[in-house]
């Protein structure tokens, strides 16, 4: 009964090696989405130029948002998981991975 439970404030300093290892692994996994986004960006711009149509501001916004979504969600997952244990961080990253797909499809639906 002598153990006094002090709720630890777990910031980024508590990530430790394993925490950053998790973050790094998921950085590569998220790169899959990022790759798709950049491929889409290049593809759209190429297609537009093939048809000689100027890429409008709205289209730029959509394709850039599409490419940037994985980065934003990754950072969000990193921040959300900063006070969790590694298992929690992995769960957050996995959910984030699915959320990237959701937002990407939302953007496609808007386009």
């Amino acid at each position: 009964m002598t153990t006094v439970e002090t709720p630890e404030k777990r910031g980024f300093t508590s990530f430790g090696r394993s925490g950053w290892a998790v973050a790094l692994v998921f950085a590569f996994i998220y790169a899959y989405h990022l790759w798709g986004g950049i491929a889409n960006l290049v593809g759209v711009v190429t297609t537009f130029s093939e048809f000689g149509a100027p890429v409008t501001g709205g289209v730029w916004a959509l394709i850039i948002a599409y490419a940037v979504v994985p980065v934003i969600v990754y950072i969000a997952a990193l921040v959300v998981g900063r006070r969790l244990r590694n298992v929690g961080r992995i769960v957050v990253f996995l959910v984030g991975f699915a959320v990237v797909a959701v937002i990407s499809l939302d953007i496609l639906a808007l386009a």
Binding site: G36, V91, V92, L94, V95, F97, A98, V99, V100, A101, V102, S104, L105
Partner: peptide
């Protein structure tokens, strides 16, 4: 992406 999107909602809820 579409498969992931289906999984996203239950994953989010449970997590």
């Amino acid at each position: 992406a579409r498969t992931l999107a289906i999984a996203a909602s239950p994953l989010w809820f449970i997590s």
